[in-house]
């Protein structure tokens, strides 16, 4: 069993509105799985189904090969996008309460909370009321509560919102550390740069359907189209561009360098290799910049969603 979680043809309807339309997912163990999609695509509904907050109308979800059951709740840690704490309750008391609801015993929960509070340097907040804390401070407590019971599956919905860059980085490091210790992470966000940094698998949900999923590297390989970004130093740039345009698909490129060379994006035909292009270019001019263009997660996101919208 390589997948921690599998969703099979999950359908969820709210009256006439279909929130999820036959969505299937496979989330490999110890991966960081990016669940992406525009607003209102159905990500939150899927996450809520995994958390057994709502139930699918059709299809099923398997956790370590078993259909979801109440006992799995204790194996999942969920940090929702809409999150908060009881304002008038004290921090320590509240964290203890939430940990106990996840099935931890009081003493054990206390011990672990002490550890985490020290680790995140928030030890002196124990007796404070939540309403005295800033938003970022409250977010740290929510993060601790989410991971405290050492769940096999962690679900973070926009985990970095409300954090300053320093704390966002701190949390990012913690997420990577948790994965190293064996947790699987589902990560839902709009911030593509953090997808790039963290995720090794992604799924893209758009208009209630899954339109793309798989290993991020594989997807990138599939999305790259043999295009290279080159910088060429030549005396007659115009002539050179004309010549290249007759042989390849050429576009102007824009990247930062120190010289004023000719900057182009060159797409090779199928079967053409980087070596062929490089040796061809080396004959014509002096090559100052040569890089294969790999689409970013953001490019893939926009491209796939747009393509899907055109195709209807």
């Amino acid at each position: 069993m390589n997948n921690l979680l599998e969703a099979k043809d999950v359908v969820k309807k709210f009256g006439a509105f279909t929130a999820l339309n036959k969505v299937s997912l496979e989330i490999p163990k110890e991966s960081i799985f990016g669940l992406l999609g525009p607003n209102g695509a159905g990500k939150t509904t899927l996450i809520r189904i995994i958390n057994q907050i709502t139930y699918p109308d059709q299809g099923n979800v398997l956790f370590e090969g078993e259909p979801l059951q109440p006992k799995h709740i204790a194996m999942i840690g969920y940090l929702p996008e809409e999150r908060g704490l009881y304002k008038s309750m004290k921090v320590g008391e509240q964290a203890l309460y939430l940990a106990q609801l996840k099935g931890l015993h009081k003493q054990e929960a206390k011990k672990r909370l002490k550890y985490w509070f020290e680790r995140l340097e928030i030890g002196d907040w124990w007796g404070k009321k939540v309403q005295e804390l800033s938003k970022g401070m409250a977010q740290k407590i929510q993060f601790v509560v989410t991971v405290l019971h050492q769940p096999k599956l962690l679900i973070f919905d926009e985990p970095f919102s409300g954090f300053d860059p320093i704390n966002a980085n701190l949390i990012k490091e913690e997420i990577l550390e948790l994965r190293k210790q064996g947790s699987t992470v589902i990560f839902s966000t709009h911030r593509m740069e953090s997808v790039e940094e963290l995720c090794d698998h992604i799924a893209l949900i758009h208009k209630s359907r899954k339109i793309l999923d798989g290993n991020l590297i594989d997807i990138k390989k599939a999305y790259k189209n043999n295009t290279y970004e080159v910088g060429l130093e030549s005396n007659d740039k115009h002539e050179l561009k004309k010549e290249l345009s007759s042989k390849f698909k050429v576009e102007d490129a824009d990247f930062k360098t120190v010289g004023d060379e000719l900057k182009l994006k060159i797409q090779l035909n199928d079967g053409g290799t980087a070596n062929d292009l490089l040796s061809y270019l080396a004959d014509k001019a002096s090559v100052s910049h040569f890089i294969e263009m790999i689409p970013s997660a953001s490019d893939i996101f926009i491209q796939t969603v747009n393509k899907n919208d055109i195709n209807g």
Binding site: N51, I53, I73, I76, Y78, L79, P80, E82, R83, G84, L85, Y86, K87, L98, L101, K102, Q142, V145
Partner: peptide
């Protein structure tokens, strides 16, 4: 209403 406005509700019902 307090649980709704403080947005703690979803955290709780992922446990109970």
């Amino acid at each position: 209403i307090e649980e709704k406005t403080s947005r703690i509700i979803e955290v709780i019902i992922s446990s109970v």
